[in-house]
């Protein structure tokens, strides 16, 4: 049993603390100037009518009230974003895990396949958008050219209200290289002894995968789910480049709407309120996932 003895604060410890603070002061200054101040400023601006070019006008909670009671587009934006998160994150996760499992098997040219699956992560978003624009193009796209040659109606991937979001999710599934690497590391950490024990107990391959491999990988799954969820709530680049929020606001996501308010309408106060709402939503989802993790995440170090 450890006993805790309070150490007396003396001049030496003060000096030590000051030295420590002096050494990390560049970081502290940077953190205060570029993180703390913007956070505090955006909290204040969210309570104002502010267009950057004129002085902010304090309006209390009016921005928030308007967002929740009057702004119809906000509801559309919220529903589009939740759709993307609820379907996109699990879809990306499943694809990444399955691909990582495949890449974890002994096979020829394994490093080559691993590189190929990671490549989409390295492709700049603008280049990705152009490639996918061509893939999805209804007139000369690689898929629809075939469809047309068979005498069938083309598939309006990103120009249909129903298909636009799933088509963007498909692109998201293509860019799972980072998650694949994380899962691959987790899969390589699965103890062989556990698999062997399960085999001795008569478990088939699927049962071993379900009851041994996946539980051991749940910490990695939790991490990928959390980071994927946060990234998906902030989804912007491909949506902006490929659909600009259309057709008919089918892909108007949270970050797009925030950007539009800030830089097209010069409504920085309203955009700040949107940013804080997004923060709270992400926080709630994160807490929910964390709380649920006690039921499904297995940490080998815990008894």
């Amino acid at each position: 049993m450890y006993t805790f003895t309070a150490q007396r604060w003396n001049r030496s410890r003060t000096r030590s603390l000051l030295k420590g603070l002096a050494f990390i002061s560049p970081w502290l200054v940077g953190f205060a100037a570029f993180v703390l101040y913007p956070i505090a400023a955006s909290a204040y601006y969210s309570l104002t009518r502010y267009d950057v070019l004129r002085a902010p006008r304090f309006i209390g909670l009016e921005n928030y009230i308007e967002l929740f009671t009057k702004d119809e587009i906000f509801r559309t934006v919220l529903s589009n974003t939740v759709y993307l998160v609820v379907l996109g994150v699990p879809a990306g996760l499943v694809v990444a895990f399955l691909l990582a499992s495949l890449l974890n098997r002994k096979m020829k040219a394994r490093p080559l396949f691993r590189t190929i699956f990671f490549l989409p992560v390295l492709v700049p978003a603008v280049a990705s958008a152009e490639v996918w624009r061509w893939v999805y193009n209804t007139n000369y796209g690689v898929i629809n050219a075939m469809v047309k040659s068979w005498g069938l109606p083309v598939i309006p991937f990103i120009s249909s209200m129903q298909l636009a979001k799933p088509s963007l999710i498909l692109i998201h599934m293509w860019t799972q290289g980072t998650a694949i690497i994380i899962f691959l590391a987790a899969l390589q950490d699965v103890p062989r002894s556990l698999k062997d024990a399960a085999r001795v107990d008569g478990a088939n391959a699927l049962q071993r995968f379900w009851h041994v491999t996946i539980p051991i990988c749940t910490p990695a799954i939790l991490f990928v789910t959390l980071t994927g969820m946060i990234g998906m709530f902030q989804y912007f680049t491909l949506g902006w480049l490929l659909t600009q929020g259309g057709p008919n606001e089918a892909t108007e996501f949270f970050s797009l709407y925030l950007y539009r308010n800030a830089f097209q309408y010069f409504k920085m106060g309203y955009a700040s309120a949107l940013a804080w709402i997004l923060f709270v939503i992400i926080l709630i989802f994160t807490l929910l996932i964390f709380r649920s993790s006690a039921r499904w995440v297995y940490y080998a170090g815990e008894s």
Partner: peptide, 8 residues
Amino acid sequence: MESFRSSF
């Protein structure tokens, strides 16, 4: 029309 616009 929407597909046409997004194509070209």
